[in-house]
Design a protein around this nucleic acid. Structure first.
Lengths: 96, 96
DNA sequence: GTAATATATGAGCAGTTGTTCATATATTCA
DNA sequence: TGAATATATGAACAACTGCTCATATATTAC
């Protein structure tokens, strides 16, 4: 099937969002519900800065959505497509 | 859901294979059936070298499989998981 | 107001990626 | 055998990525 250059780039960008282990782990935690930046950082053993930088990218891709509560910002998955992609990938990895 | 570091890396590697527009376009062509390196290069307006380099990566990821016939090498998708991931991503891009 | 807390952001840097170019290998044909 | 064709591979290089570190912004508590 012929694919336009634009769509190819969009698809590549979509999969790029899941092409890093830190982002994958962030998403795996958010599957259970929303979580703040600090909590994510602690669970993932990453600095808050690094997590925040990654969340920015995920936000721009509309993979996650932010909710501000006081001085905390809670993130959650924005789209169930993300979860579907994640689960399909996991299936492939587990018995591939 | 907690995800082991190993699985996170494997998932990231899986999605990395689809995180480049050239590779996405290669896969989109192979959805129609096997194709040689030269034919891919021509359709994609890439050098044969660049295509060959990308196919090497896709081969190592077991995304494509090679069949040698004389001096040509025909590539095809190795796994229908690849196609599923591709189609799900495309769906997301099209009406996301 | 100041201090403390939570997150965001920009610069800088090391590591990675995708390409080109030159060269190597393998196969067919004369 | 030697020339032509098809693909693969290694080096080199520019562009990109993800991190750290320092700093900025925003909110709460005092």
């Amino acid at each position: 099937m012929k694919l336009s250059e634009l769509k190819a780039i969009q698809l590549a960008e979509l999969f790029s969002a899941l092409s890093d282990a830190s982002r994958v782990r962030i998403i795996s935690l958010l599957l259970d519900g929303e979580m703040g930046v600090g909590a994510l950082a602690e669970k993932l053993n990453m600095t808050e800065s690094a997590v925040s930088h990654q969340l920015r990218g995920l936000r721009q891709m509309r993979f996650v959505r932010a909710r501000k509560a006081g001085r905390q910002v809670f993130y959650r998955l924005d789209d169930d497509h993300v979860e579907k992609l994640y689960r399909m990938g996991l299936e492939h990895v587990q018995h591939g």
